[in-house]
Design a protein around this nucleic acid. Sequence first.
DNA 1: GGTACCTGGAG
DNA 2: TCTCCAGGTAC
Length: 261
Amino acid sequence: MTISYTKDSLIETLKQIRALGWIENRRHGNDGGIGNTLEDLLGIDENNLPIPNAAEWELKCQRSRTASLTTLLHREPSPLGMRLVPRLLLPKYGWRHEKAGSKYPDTEMSFRQTINAVSRTDRGFGIRADHNERKVIVSFDASKVNSRHNDWLNQVKQKVSLDELNPQPYWGFDDLFHAIGSKLHNCFYIKADTKKESGKEYFHYTDIMMLQKFSLEKFIIAIEQGNILVDFDARTGHNHGTKFRLRQDCMPDLYETVKKF
DNA sequence: GGTACCTGGAG
DNA sequence: TCTCCAGGTAC
């Protein structure tokens, strides 16, 4: 059972929650506690912001001081049927997982890369936005690999080649916009201060922002500015999926209309 | 049960 | 900041 809100009543309730000050984390040991606790206070279910006649509202919650990137959505790269993460990137460009032979089987491989459009990772990966093809394209440049990865680079050379990825994984602009637009078209974005006392964690929900009209143009600009990153997150036994992630404080940059309360 | 999604963080 | 990583669910 969930409570229904209008936009205005939700804003008023969020203001009241802000006025409560420090609130104990209701989901100890859960990284999502900051969001779950707010959902408990609002009396709503996870991933369900029930505002009648206002479809497509997302509640997004984040700690004020965190180095973490905000995950916008998950999407495996195209062509989807080729399953390029488990079939190409992980086996050919992956490395031995640091816990292979202990937590995981001896053969466990890892491919974790957080890549952007303005610089290469130290393993030579990057993305670029191609406006003619209307795609975000993944690229590998062996000449940009840091010498600390020489052994790994030699393995890549033996297993595949040092040339550009073939095929290059990509996401179509329009596919991305549909996926992200249907999820984040409109968003209540809440930030909270955190503190720990006597082993208990507390939240103070301080910033209330209403973000409206997600913009594809602004999304692509954020990619080109390096403020949105693509995060590969696969090991042999579990592909956690490929994420589009946002640098801290860039969320309002993606919307046409920003209102603070 | 496999795959693609979800929530994220530590050093 | 970047590198590398976690436990989950929906279908």
